[in-house]
Amino acid sequence: MTTVPLYEESAHRKHTPWRRIMLAVEPYIYIAPSVLLITMIMLVPLVIGLSYAFRDIQLINPFSGGFIGLEHFRTLWTDAAFWHSMKNTLVWTFASVVLQFAFGLVLALLLNNPFPGRGIVQALVFLPWAVPTFLSGLNWAWLFNPVVGPLPHWMAALGILSAPENILSDPSLAMWGPIAANVWWGIPFFAITLLAALQSIPQDIYEAASIDGAGPWRRFTDITLPFLAPTIAITVLLRTVWIANFADLIIVMTNGGPADQTQIVSSYIFTQAFRRLDFGYASAVAMVLLILLLAYSFVIILLRQAMLKR
């Protein structure tokens, strides 16, 4: 017995390397299509796009294309329109995320407990998410248009506006138009994710807490919120980044106007690239935006880890 070598069957030795290799390679076969697609269609173009930031690329100028180093970034530093759009991005992102989150959380809580008709109500309140974004933009633009939309008239009747005018053409109010559309469209996203998280909280924890004497409010602050915290953190993070990048509504509703009052960085990139056809400068702005967003995510993740450690 002891002198028998471990692998005496030559028939099996033949199969040995093949199965080893198959086992090692198997996961990569499953992810290959995804990785290939993402690399070819997102990563490679991203790198090319980033390289434009250091080149002079203007579609209307056939002699452009040269390498110009940091020139675009120097221009950017003194570009008042860019700084203005940064400020607008903050307002746009912050207001949209906070409102979407607050409304979404309340909605998720309302939908969490069973009641007759919950299925239908849930389907209806989630419906805005299915509306194509450009169509939501158009739709809200029409609602704010005093000719065909009721909103200006109602707001005037309530005394919010002095006259039934289109807030989208009022520089001081215009930003609230796209924000309203964004909130309407984005509530379901938060509600869906938070509802899923709520439904995964084990019910017996609530029962234990009630027996321990916790009232509804205490149960919410002591159980629901801590359980939701990880979901909230990750959703808010992803959503903030996404909304900062999200220019569709603004482009459709106001196109950055009036007087650049609704121009955010990503719509500014769009304007530079497709109205001025200056791809080099657009890429430089995009690169700054990408770096800021990466930095933001990084800080948030670090904060989260610091909090988890505590």
Binding site: M42, Y52, L293
Partner: peptide, 19 residues
């Protein structure tokens, strides 16, 4: 990689993809 792709300003990819 998959998380970072969610942060791309997609506008930036239009010209390279076109090319």
């Amino acid at each position: 990689l998959m998380l970072v792709t969610q942060m791309f300003p997609l506008v930036m990819l239009v010209a390279p993809i076109f090319k």
